[in-house]
């Protein structure tokens, strides 16, 4: 565990906390894509099937359970909580996310490290995570104005991806046998998706103005 990896995990955790805080404090999920949240729940459930077969560390097990539980809690809030549910605008959140699920699964059937149940679901979760933010980014772009907490949520998620790339560079330089092409290539693709958002996030931060994405 290096400092980039730890910082990445912490910003990931922070992003989820920010989102939960936003939903809890405002009793609203306006600006939040339910589809992205459902994709993340699928990502964690598919990837952490190894909770039952492999033990890495207490830290790993703990974080896996936190990610699964928090992603399910967010989906639950948006789908079931009476007040939060009311604030969900399904007309803005129209991305056909099942296409992402189907495409990721198809890719995992062809591109995986081993043809086993766990490995295929692992590869699937990696591909799906890479594109899971798309419904959220499209929703933000369509609604134009982004409230502070939602903006910070996406910012921390993007920071987490950026830090993971630094972590891989560090591991590549310090661990002689570190080769993890599926995760690294997907990770770079995923981070690139945030480039546009980051550009506007920094502009609004520099000008001390509200974050606005061009239509």
């Amino acid at each position: 565990m290096n400092i980039f990896r730890l910082a990445g995990d912490m910003t990931h955790l922070l992003s989820i906390l920010v989102l939960l805080l936003k939903i809890y404090a405002t009793k609203s999920c306006s600006g939040v894509s339910r589809k992205t949240q459902e994709l993340y729940a699928i990502v964690f459930l598919a990837r952490y099937l190894d909770l039952f077969t492999d033990f890495i560390s207490v830290y790993n097990t703990f974080m896996k359970i936190v990610f699964i539980a928090s992603s399910l809690a967010i989906v639950w809030c948006i789908r079931v909580h009476p007040m939060v549910k009311r604030s969900y605008d399904k007309d803005l959140d129209t991305f056909r996310h099942y296409l992402l699920v189907a495409a990721s699964f198809l890719l995992a059937l062809f591109l995986h490290e081993k043809f086993t149940f766990l490995e295929i679901f692992w590869a699937f979760s990696i591909y799906l995570e890479a594109v899971a933010i798309l419904p959220q980014l499209v929703l933000l772009q369509r609604s134009g104005n982004v409230d502070n907490l939602t903006g910070q949520y996406v910012f921390f998620l993007g920071a987490y991806r950026g830090l993971y790339i630094l972590n891989w560079i560090y591991r590549y330089l310090t661990e002689p046998r570190f080769t993890r092409w599926i995760a690294c290539v997907s990770g770079v693709v995923q981070t690139a998706l945030y480039a546009d958002f980051f550009y506007y996030y920094f502009i609004s931060w520099k000008n001390n103005s509200k974050l606005k994405l061009p239509a």
């Binding site: 974080m63 896996k64 046998r177």
Partner: peptide, 10 residues
Amino acid sequence: SSITDAKDEL
């Protein structure tokens, strides 16, 4: 260890 067996990242 092989390439695949160390899924130590989250």
